[in-house]
């Protein structure tokens, strides 16, 4: 495995191996000395052509805990925002000797363009591209679900997940649907019809427009962020109506089955897709998703750059 561009690049064994490696690395992070020497002398570039402080610092923390050198190349003040081409940026990073490039980009497929080109030899890790995929988010979500719902199983067989909201524009949803399906979970999408893509018929998911009907039967409710710009583009009449039908409020929280959990990739619109009392409730694992994100991203870097998974006891 050289790049992580899409969940579809992964076999089930590889996905489970990343989660297992993350479990081991999480133990390291819980110890007194949080750092491993594995990637000492390796250079990882965070190329963020789109704002995302939380994903960037998560990858940065992960790389530093593996002792890699980290260069942050963010859109603001960088050449990407000044109109330098992706090609020239890639040539520059190649000339600087990057071993891996973690890329966040507004254009779907930009990471694949980097990986497939001859401009750069580094490993490419997709940290979210346009409305395409966000594979590290899906892996950290699967890690979180496994921890809470899998009862010790290595995969997510039989676990039922509802993904709720703007599937059309969500890279988080696309990666999660692929990974949850790969790991044996069943997925229900809940959204207004306007926010589901044409062509969704072939996806391995159930589709519902009725949130209340789906809630009681699932183990995980994963809420998606509603982008402000969707409001003005006829996808739904207004924020109040969206919230009424597709928001996770305290009434709907009561419909959830015992032991089920609430997830959100962040950042949240409190009061729109998720009520504050739900986000802060005991069922919410939203903050834990963030800390799991560091372990999972460590595992991704470990597997891609050290070329191996970390078996239990090997550390």
């Amino acid at each position: 495995m050289r790049h992580l561009l899409s969940i579809s690049d992964l076999s089930k064994a590889e996905a489970v191996s990343i989660l297992d490696t993350a479990t081991e690395l999480a133990r390291v992070s819980d110890g007194a000395v949080k750092k491993l020497p594995t990637l000492r002398g390796r250079t990882i570039v965070n190329l963020f052509a789109e704002d995302s402080t939380r994903t960037r610092i998560s990858f940065e923390a992960a790389a530093k805990r593996l002792s890699a050198d980290v260069i942050n190349f963010s859109a603001k003040g960088s050449s990407v925002s000044k109109g330098e081409s992706l090609k020239d940026t890639a040539l520059t990073l190649q000339a600087m000797g990057a071993d891996a490039v973690v890329i966040r980009h507004g254009a779907s497929g930009a990471p694949q363009r980097l990986a497939d080109s001859e401009w750069m030899l580094a490993s490419v890790i997709n940290a979210g591209d346009g409305t395409h995929e966000h594979p590290s988010q899906a892996l950290l979500d699967a890690f979180t679900i496994r921890k809470h719902c899998a009862k010790g199983a290595p995969d997510l067989a039989g676990i039922r997940v509802a993904i709720v909201g703007d599937v059309l524009h969500s890279r988080v949803a696309r990666s999660n649907i692929l990974l949850l399906n790969l790991l044996g979970a069943s997925v229900s999408l809940v959204a207004p019809p306007t926010l589901l893509p044409v062509g969704i018929e072939k996806w391995p998911v159930d589709i519902s427009y009725d949130f209340d009907a789906v809630i009681p039967s699932v183990d995980v409710v994963m809420m998606l962020r509603v982008q402000q710009e969707r409001m003005s583009n006829l996808f739904f009449p207004n924020a109040r109506e969206y919230s009424r039908y597709f928001g996770l409020n305290s009434d709907r929280l009561k419909l959830m089955s015992p032991h089920s959990i609430v997830m959100h990739p962040g950042p949240m619109n409190r009061g729109l897709e998720i009520a504050a009392e739900v986000a802060d409730s005991a069922r919410s694992v939203i903050v834990e998703q963030v800390s799991n994100g560091v372990s999972v991203r460590m595992a991704i870097l470990y597997v891609l750059l050290a070329g191996q998974s970390l078996e239990a006891g090997e550390k």
Partner: peptide
Amino acid sequence: EGEVSAVLGL
């Protein structure tokens, strides 16, 4: 617009 665009996010 179809199955492929849905997957690619274009």
